[in-house]
Computed example of a mutant assay.
Amino acid sequence: MTHLLGRQDCVESLRRDLIDIQGAVLDVFSRTGPVRFPSWKFPDKLSCNLDLVSLLEQYDFVDGEEEFNQHSHIVLLELVIDR
């Protein structure tokens, strides 16, 4: 499965998944208020305070940057777990 690591379609799919998950999280927050627990990915921050827009901008697919794309793939997967 390592041949999939950093592929554009995989990175884009993870980004769409994160947007969908964040929408569901915000829907729950609108009813319950924010859940104040440390982020799994960024333990120094509360999970409800993560700036997902900024993170999605930072970890995007870049043509010709295989190592960066692999890193982005892993970070995005970790953010799915964090959500």
Rank of each mutant, 00 (worst) to 15 (best):
M1H: 06
M1A: 12
M1I: 11
T2M: 10
T2Q: 12
T2W: 11
T2V: 12
H3D: 14
L4M: 09
L4C: 08
L4K: 04
G6F: 14
G6M: 08
C10E: 15
E12I: 13
L14P: 00
L14M: 13
R16I: 10
R16S: 06
D17W: 01
L18W: 06
L18K: 02
I19T: 09
I21L: 07
Q22T: 03
G23E: 12
G23Q: 11
G23N: 12
A24C: 13
A24I: 12
A24Q: 10
L26M: 10
L26A: 11
L26S: 14
D27L: 10
F29D: 03
S30M: 04
R31H: 08
R31C: 09
R31D: 06
R31I: 08
R31K: 12
T32G: 04
P34A: 00
V35Y: 10
R36H: 07
F37N: 13
P38H: 12
W40C: 07
K41D: 04
K41N: 05
D44M: 08
D44Y: 07
K45M: 15
L46G: 03
S47D: 12
C48A: 15
C48N: 08
N49Q: 15
N49K: 15
L52M: 15
V53A: 03
S54T: 15
L55W: 06
L55H: 10
L55A: 10
L56A: 08
E57F: 09
E57D: 14
Q58V: 01
Y59V: 08
Y59S: 09
F61D: 05
G64H: 11
E65L: 06
E65Y: 08
E65N: 05
E66W: 00
E67I: 01
N69C: 13
Q70T: 00
H71V: 04
S72F: 00
S72D: 07
H73S: 04
I74V: 09
I74Q: 11
I74N: 08
V75R: 01
V75Y: 01
V75P: 01
L77Y: 12
L77G: 14
L77N: 08
L77T: 07
L79H: 03
L79C: 03
L79S: 02
I81S: 01
I81M: 02
I81W: 05
